[in-house]
């Protein structure tokens, strides 16, 4: 049963992923990614974290993808007329892809063979508290610094966007 659910979710992620990457229309691509995200949220739930599933849906589906859709509609993208996506930058891309494919297949064997056998560093025990409780407990102690940093990072993104989108006064005769 578990396996069936996993296979369904895996297919539900890979196929929309492929479709998104290969679709001509950016709107379709964004919508396919939405499908992917929702499946992934369920996968995260089966992996034992209802909190992350919720965050995934709220942040990704609720914010990021809506932002994407908003931008796509705002700049009014038409469909790509030509199907020339594999032409332009392919030479370098192919090289890099081959490089990675080589590493993947070379490493796949021992990566998959290696089941995680380490002793947990920050162990959690569901009998003492829910997953959310444990996450919160460590997020605000051990990972406090990173948590604050992420806040700063998002602030910087907002400020940067403000910086660029503020209309610059064009100065006459100054072409520098």
């Amino acid at each position: 049963m578990d396996l069936l659910v996993f296979l369904y979710l895996a297919l539900g992620m890979c196929i929309p992923g492929l479709l998104a990457v290969l679709s001509k229309n950016p709107v379709h691509a964004v919508l396919w990614v939405l499908v992917l995200i929702i499946h992934q949220a369920f996968l995260l739930y089966t992996l034992g974290s209802e909190f992350l599933a919720a965050v995934q849906i709220i942040v990704y589906a609720g914010a990021v993808l809506v932002l994407f859709l908003f931008v796509v509609y705002m700049i009014n993208l038409r469909m790509e007329e030509r199907w020339r996506v594999f032409v332009k930058r392919s030479s370098l891309g192919l090289l890099i892809l081959l490089f990675f494919a080589f590493f993947f297949f070379k490493s796949l064997a021992f990566l998959t063979a290696l089941s995680p056998h380490f002793k947990a560093n920050l162990h959690y025990d569901l009998s003492q508290g829910t997953n959310l409780w444990w996450i919160a407990r460590y997020l605000f102690t051990h990972y406090l610094f990173q948590f604050e940093l992420i806040g700063v990072l998002l602030l910087v993104v907002v400020l940067g966007a403000v910086f660029l989108l503020r209309k610059l006064k064009e100065v006459e005769g100054d072409s520098l």
């Binding site: 990972y143 610094f145 990173q146 940093l149 992420i150 700063v152 990072l153 910087v156 993104v157 940067g160 966007a161 910086f163 660029l164 610059l168 064009e170 100054d174 072409s175 520098l176």
Partner: peptide, 25 residues
């Protein structure tokens, strides 16, 4: 490695904007 990564992003993200500073010109 996580802090390192967030720091790297924090280092680069302002630069993405700063490089584009002169886009009007």
């Amino acid at each position: 490695f996580l802090t390192l990564f967030i720091g790297l992003e924090l280092m680069s993200i302002p630069l993405y904007f700063l490089i584009a500073t002169q886009y009007v010109y």
